[in-house]
Write a protein that binds this DNA or RNA. Structure first.
Lengths: 143, 143
DNA sequence: ATGAAATTGAAAATCATTTTCAATTATACT
DNA sequence: AGTATAATTGAAAATGATTTTCAATTTCAT
């Protein structure tokens, strides 16, 4: 976690932003929680220990965490932005259960390779991609 | 287009909803426009010819069009819901240009097959999926 | 035709996100 | 350490898409 905090501080320095206690509190709360967090969820966590940190600051810090490369936005199509850890984590996609809402991280190198191939074929320079498979998890089965 | 209108009317009957001129106007405007439309865009089109149809009705009819199986929601991650034609159209995914915003429909059977295989491996029953590749189109190049 | 039930559109509510702004704080430089 | 300056903060308001409310209107089975 120390490594991530250093990276974040470096990123702030690089773009002439300041290291503040609020920013560090938000970052630490994010790093401690290995989950896909929405801004509101993270705000509630931070607020528990540090009620003086406002929602806006959490929101803004989340953007900075993304830009510093420590987090990536995931989009499950519910119009809520969620962040997942990026640093030290391999790229992956998701399978989302339509019934219980649980999701699973998946990674399939063959699919990744085919995506790149497909882009190349269309003269498209891929930067990132999203893939989500929606359906029913083992427990929920399909009806 | 007649076929689609019939399907829509059948769908309404099946769930005890009424066939109204507003609903038909919205449906026809949607069918005539072979594009990925947001609710607002469709409202503007409908409004041009039929100013008496309100935004709310367009919004609600769009939901019905989706449920009737004539349209599918696409999500380009900008928090705006867009609908594309589903009936008589093959499933496909998208490549979205980060610079000019243009998108292209793509379909790669091998990827589709691998997605199903991946789901099966995880005991997951896939229902639908989304895949979007973001990057730079031929014209915009990278950088 | 009639009446129950659905529909309509304007306006308001919701909800996540984003901006505004005056007061506060971090940092570079004496 | 003190100071100037530029960034930061949090509350509140603005935004923008979506969704609900509700009284008036319309549909359609009978």
């Amino acid at each position: 976690m120390q490594k991530e905090i250093e990276l974040f501080k470096e990123h702030l320095k690089k773009i002439n932003l300041k290291v503040t206690s609020q920013r560090l509190k938000v970052l630490e709360a994010f790093l401690k929680t290995e989950k896909h967090l929405s801004c509101e969820e993270l705000f509630l966590i931070v607020h528990r220990n540090a009620p003086e940190v406002g929602y806006t600051t959490v929101y803004r810090t989340l953007k900075l965490i993304q830009k510093s490369g420590l987090a990536r936005e995931v989009d499950f199509g519910d119009r809520v932005s969620r962040l997942e850890h990026e640093y030290g984590h391999q790229h992956h996609d998701h399978m989302v259960c339509l019934k219980c809402g649980k999701f699973f991280e998946v990674y399939e190198p063959e699919i990744e390779a085919l995506q790149d191939k497909l882009a190349k074929k269309k003269n498209f320079t891929p930067v990132r991609h999203k893939m989500e498979i929606f359906g029913y998890c083992r427990e929920c089965g399909k009806k």
